[in-house]
Design a protein around this nucleic acid. Structure first.
Length: 450
DNA sequence: ATCGGCTCGCGCAA
DNA sequence: TGCGCGAAGCCGAT
């Protein structure tokens, strides 16, 4: 039974007979998917067929072809899993605001479910779809462990204001998730799913061959990554996560971003793991508190990727320092090609481009240096967001926008001693990195661009 | 190696 | 209204 806390009615319409559909976007999995479970629950109650829709938006936010390949690889697995349960995955391409209503109308669908997503493009698509389809549109938040709208009704000032709310609510959401069963009511067009699978495979064939450095996509790969982390990484997570040398982090971020694994599943397994409480707390702090704080930030702050989204004190202090001399200025091509005077920054940039992921602590350092080396905060923000969205497998995600806003604009942070360019925004430098870990070993470990 | 100061504002206690 | 405290820090003093 899906909790009402996960549900928001985005569109209303008359109750009528007909198939049920789920417009999958951010949660691209079959297992542990509350939206899909809710859709099936309703379809079973109505003795109606069920289909899952996915609408691919070409060139979405400048994502790299490797990111698309990672997503499509996961979607093919999802399509096969759905087929085993006699549920077609219908694969559309184009503008969701056009394609979803068209398909819903042609199929005489009676109810549509969708995922929760706080980003503006997704909200606009959902609004457009809701206004066009004339049937109920139900949003289900199965991406967050504690549903975002329920966790807090406003933008949280910092982690310390959000953490107690999460701590209080988390236990009631750490539980088993209903599985999706073989659907007894057949979709009218039996070939629909097969045709989509073919289109998916063709789309994937046009993209670059999967690179081993990026890691394998899909729900199965995500589960085995989780199993390995529970086995080998979790116990020492607290001491190793901030060292870019080695495998201290879980490596789950790309899977979580595409919803190839459920955060609730990860949190549930971690909470039951046989390790010290400190290790669990440290990981759940990242997975739940920080990750879901990012959704909170984007949902309640329309300017989540703009200067105007920074807190007053940070905007003021950055304004005060606009005229400061910037001794090292790089243009975007120099940054993109990892040709700056900072070997650590260059290595971090290469790690992102070559592997589609950057170690967590380095992401902060990386973004702050872009502020230091850009003519204005606005330019820095645009560059950081653009590079992150393009090259990170987990780019185009609230976590990226919140992380960059933390680094450049003091979001969820506090004021620090005033200095050039940064003003009172927290500063980081290479000396600090050297204090924390072996910088040279890290730089050597990332190969140069050829 | 360790420590205090730097600095802002939220949220709670009073 | 006062007070404690906070994602990953820096820097200089001891």
């Amino acid at each position: 039974m899906v909790e009402s806390e996960r549900l928001k009615v985005l569109g209303k319409g008359p109750r009528r007979e007909g198939p049920v559909a789920y417009w999958m976007s951010r949660d691209q999995r079959v297992d542990d998917n509350w939206s899909l479970a809710a859709a099936q629950e309703m379809a079973l109650a109505r003795k109606a067929p069920l289909a899952v829709l996915f609408c691919l938006v070409p060139a979405y936010k400048g994502a790299s072809r490797e990111s698309f390949a990672f997503m499509l690889g996961g979607l093919i697995e999802t399509a096969r899993e759905l087929a085993r349960r006699k549920i077609p995955l219908v694969f559309l391409r184009g503008d969701p605001a056009v394609e979803i209503p068209r398909w819903v109308g042609e199929g005489a669908v009676s109810v549509l479910f969708c995922d929760f997503d706080p980003l503006r493009e997704k909200k606009r698509w959902q609004e457009a779809v809701a206004s066009k389809i004339g049937i109920p549109l139900f949003e289900i938040d199965g991406h967050n462990v504690v549903p975002c709208r329920f966790a807090s009704p406003k933008q949280e000032y910092a982690a310390y204001t959000f953490r107690p709310k999460m701590k209080r609510l988390l236990p009631r959401f750490l539980k088993e998730i209903p599985s999706v069963e073989r659907h007894p009511f057949r979709w009218p067009d039996e070939k629909e799913g097969e045709r989509s699978l073919k289109v998916l495979a063709e789309s994937l064939a046009l993209l670059p061959a999967p690179q081993a450095a990026l890691g394998p996509p899909g729900a199965l790969a995500a589960r085995s990554r989780l199993a390995r982390f529970l086995d080998e990484g979790l116990a020492r997570y607290d001491e190793r996560r901030n060292d870019p040398n080695g495998e201290g982090q879980s490596g789950l971020s790309p899977y979580l971003h595409f919803g190839q694994i459920s955060a609730q599943r990860v949190a549930f397994e971690v909470s039951r793991a046989d390790v010290a409480d400190e290790a669990k707390e440290a990981f759940l702090e990242e997975l739940v508190v920080r990750r879901e704080l990012a959704d909170n930030f984007c949902l309640h702050n329309d300017a989540y990727d703009r200067f105007e989204g920074f807190p007053d004190w940070a905007r003021k202090t950055l304004d005060d320092h606009r005229g400061d001399e910037r001794p090292f200025l790089y243009d975007l091509p120099a940054l993109e090609a990892a040709r700056t005077g900072d070997p650590l920054w260059n290595a971090a940039q290469r790690q992102m481009v070559l592997r589609g992921r950057m170690q967590g602590w380095l992401r902060m350092y990386w973004a702050k240096k872009i502020l230091e080396w850009s003519p204005s905060p606005e330019e820095a923000l645009e560059r950081a967001v653009g590079l992150n969205d393009r090259y990170e497998l987990d780019g185009r995600d609230p976590n990226g926008y919140a992380g960059i806003a933390w680094s450049l604009g003091g979001v969820h942070d506090r004021a620090w001693p005033e200095r050039p360019v940064f003003g009172k925004v927290r500063y980081m430098n290479l000396a600090g990195a050297r204090r924390k870990f072996d910088v040279d070993a890290f730089c050597r470990s990332i190969p140069p661009f050829e």
